[in-house]
Design a protein around this nucleic acid. Sequence first.
DNA 1: CAGAATCCGGTCAGATACTG
DNA 2: CAGTATCTGACCGGATTCTG
Lengths: 120, 120
Amino acid sequence: MLQLRCDDINADWKERALGLRDAVELFRGKWKFVILKTLAHGPLRFKDLQEKLNISPKVLTRELRELEQNLLIVRTIRKMKQISVEYAVTEYARETKWILETLISFGENHRKKIKAQVKA
Amino acid sequence: MLQLRCDDINADWKERALGLRDAVELFRGKWKFVILKTLAHGPLRFKDLQEKLNISPKVLTRELRELEQNLLIVRTIRKMKQISVEYAVTEYARETKWILETLISFGENHRKKIKAQVKA
DNA sequence: CAGAATCCGGTCAGATACTG
DNA sequence: CAGTATCTGACCGGATTCTG
């Protein structure tokens, strides 16, 4: 929790900034969106993801953990001859699709605007 | 531009991921939202911002530059006895308010969901 | 005043090698 | 197979000092 000073009349939106950060962090970084999209076609194992995305195991592990903690994917272990771990998107992840779409279209428009400005 | 492999049927959303990144980066970090909110009350000089936010000059400079490049603020130099540089939010910044609000409320809901899950 | 330069500790993405 | 361990180099936020 951020410590606020007495003369700080902005306490309310400093709290709101935390909500913003949560949302931003959720889809931040190079991989989260890509992983979600890849799993949208159907569940995949660790190895499959690694090969499809060309990502190092350490990074993949961390990204998967974060997505799991945010309830966007589920991790299920299958005891075969060889251990197999399957990752799948959750219903909640599908419910978040709208905000992803919102962000993407906003981002694309924004990019256009910046480009136009640079030329002008 | 990302290089895509032949077997890659996902070229379209790899491009869309760029839009997402633009949007996410726009309000990322510790300061951008706070600066925008602070300037929403009216233009301020570098020094004012520095004192209000208790931020180091290097970081403040970088954040202001990024916001300026993204057309969210404008920088105007006033030649007084002492040089004075004023920063103000743009109309475009006001137009982006809706997406900030969207992200914030989504983030707050998400936070609640995660907390509830942890307890359960 | 507005910032640039420098130094710092921490985190991040990635490559690589190794383990149960 | 599904990761962990280790090391790297880049970047981030910050403190401090210096300059036009």
